[in-house]
Simulated assay, not measured.
Amino acid sequence: MFKRVLKNVVVSLSVLGFSASTAFAAFPDKDLTLVVPWSAGGGTDTIARALVKNAEKHIGVNVNVVNKIGGQGVVGMSSVKLARPDGYTVGLITFGLSTYELMGLSNLNYHDFKLLQLLNQSSTALSVKSDSKWKSLKDVMEFAKANPGQVTVGHTGAGVAWHLSIASLAEAYGIKFNFIPFDGAAPTSSALLGGHIDLAATGIDEVKQLREGGQLNVLAIDAVNTNPSFPDIPTYTDAGYKVGAPVLDWRGLALPKNVPADRVKFLEEGFKKMFDDPEFREFTKTVGLGLVYEDSKGFEDFLANMEKVLKPTLESVGLTKK
Rank of each mutant, 00 (worst) to 15 (best):
G288R: 00
A220L: 04
H58Q: 02
L192S: 03
I197R: 04
H163R: 03
V5I: 11
D277G: 05
I175A: 12
R281E: 10
Y88D: 13
P231Y: 07
P85D: 09
V11Q: 12
M274Q: 07
L319T: 04
S79N: 05
K311M: 08
A170C: 05
M306A: 08
D277I: 09
F179L: 09
D31N: 13
R4I: 14
P37F: 06
Q215P: 05
L289K: 12
N107C: 09
D232A: 15
E268Y: 01
L102H: 00
A125D: 08
P228D: 07
L32F: 02
M103I: 15
S168M: 14
V15S: 14
T286D: 08
V287Y: 10
A167L: 02
T284R: 12
T202C: 12
Q72N: 12
I166H: 05
R263T: 03
L126I: 05
T156Y: 11
A50Q: 11
K114I: 01
G194R: 02
A161F: 12
V259D: 04
V317W: 15
D222M: 12
G290H: 13
F266C: 07
N107F: 15
A146D: 05
L92T: 03
G318V: 07
S106L: 05
T313Q: 08
K242S: 08
E268D: 04
G149I: 11
E206L: 06
G157A: 06
L115F: 04
T33S: 12
P181R: 10
L314H: 14
V247T: 09
V292A: 14
L126R: 02
A23Q: 07
T46F: 12
T235F: 14
P234W: 01
G17Y: 07
L219V: 09
S98L: 00
G288E: 01
S130R: 12
E307A: 04
A261W: 01
E282A: 15
S106T: 04
A167Q: 00
K257T: 03
M274H: 04
P85H: 05
L97S: 03
G76N: 02
E294M: 09
A254T: 00
A167N: 00
L51P: 08
V80F: 05
N109T: 10
K7S: 14
P260H: 09
H111S: 09
V61T: 12
L267E: 08
S39H: 15
R49A: 04
G159S: 12
D131L: 06
S127L: 11
K7W: 13
T226Y: 09
I204S: 13
P231A: 09
L32A: 02
A172N: 08
S12Y: 13
F177C: 08
S19M: 14
M141W: 13
Y100S: 07
L248R: 14
